[in-house]
């Protein structure tokens, strides 16, 4: 019985998880294409910006979780070591989502550029439940626009 439940969860995780991942990647690509003109850089203003600029703090964040199938695969790879491709995909999705949210905020505010972008990743796992992987990713930076 337990084996049956395990297999059912594995199948559900694989089916739904893969579908959601693929549609998320497609959506990311579309949104990134729309926002391609906004320049985002990870360096700051070492030299003073002109007076006629306004700035604001922008933060984009997302909490993303692994699925049952990914967690299982990762635990298997853990035995032999090596790259965990399933988690690489997961984190890539999260990071792109966080950056996109920041960029969307920037566009809504009217920014022409986002400077000094930083990214932060942290595990907000509760240790009580084994294998529960939830990761928070934030991207933040300073948006600038011309003063009206």
């Amino acid at each position: 019985m337990e084996v049956l439940i395990f297999l059912a969860l594995l199948a559900l995780g694989y089916g739904v998880g893969t579908h959601r991942e693929q549609s998320h990647f497609r959506q990311l690509q579309r949104r990134e294409y729309q926002l391609r003109n906004l320049s985002v850089v990870s360096f700051g203003a070492k030299e003073a910006l002109p007076d006629d600029r306004e700035t604001t703090l922008l933060v984009g964040s997302v909490v993303i979780s692994s699925d049952y199938f990914k967690t299982f695969v990762a635990s298997l790879i853990n035995l032999v070591g090596g790259r965990i491709g399933v988690y690489e995909n997961l984190l890539e999705r999260g990071r792109r989502e966080a950056v996109l949210r920041m960029k969307e905020q920037a566009v809504a505010w009217g920014a022409t550029q986002v400077l000094n972008v930083r990214m932060e990743t942290s595990n907000i796992n509760s240790e009580t439940r084994r294998g529960l992987v939830s990761i928070e990713i934030i991207a933040y930076g300073t948006g600038i626009k011309e003063k009206r």
């Binding site: 995780g13 739904v16 998320h24 964040s61 049952y68 939830s134």
Partner: peptide
């Protein structure tokens, strides 16, 4: 979130909480 962990993806509740 425990349920969502089966299928994966964004945990909207946590995102809001942390925001």
């Amino acid at each position: 979130a425990g349920l969502q962990n089966i299928v994966g993806g964004e945990l909207t509740g946590y995102t809001e909480l942390l925001q």
